[in-house]
Amino acid sequence: MPHNLNLSIMIEIKDLHKSYQMGSNSLHVLKGINFNVNEGELVSIMGSSGSGKSTLLNILGMLDEADSGSYFLDNIPIKNLNEKIAARYRNKFLGFIFQSFNLINYKNALDNVAMPLYYQGIKRKERTDKALHYLEKVGLADWATHLPNELSGGQKQRVAIARALASEPKVLLADEPTGALDTKTSYEVMDLIQGINDEGKTILIVTHEEDIAHMTKRIVNLKDGLIIDDGIVEQVRANSYV
């Protein structure tokens, strides 16, 4: 990739290695990953179970650290961060979407969405306004005061997406966002994600469902800790199914 395009590179990783230490055994999970993601891309990471998809995503999300290799996020080196800085970077740069939603069950939808804003030190009033705006965006404004256990799986994931968007991050990281949803709901969630991507947000999705992967614009295939395939695909619009 030409060097002068660096400005639009959102994620740049080189020769990333990661092993898990289990007693005296060491499990080499990532064996030298190289790839870049440009701003505005919608990428899916595929691979069989245990191939290291989540491991890679967690390193990208600064929830975990690589053993070696380099990682730049929007030209910022992500290396040897202490927890305080890592927390700040996560808060400012990243939005997470999890398979199991990971909403805080005693807080209502609005408060869940407002949580990253709270950690940004934003005032309550502004926080509420923003959170409501993003709830509206995912079509759940009417559910603002509902607790997570009063919502369906698809609704929960939409709240989680609103929460990930609330802090206006550079990148959204989603680990099997549709893994716990039925096909129809999955497509609704993908429709939402496509819409967000259309607005220019960079998004990485881990999935092992082919149909979901084809709703992204690029598929990266992992096998045994290495990228075996990386290519642009024709994006299938999720709303064409419903």
């Binding site: 305080k84 927390a87 808060n91 909403l103 805080i104 949580m115 950690y119 929460r163 802090s167």
Partner: peptide, 16 residues
């Protein structure tokens, strides 16, 4: 533990 994990993923600093 899980809730604390979520909070930290969302940007809660160790001190908070």
């Amino acid at each position: 533990t899980k809730e604390i994990g979520i909070r930290r993923a969302l940007g809660a600093s160790p001190w908070s």
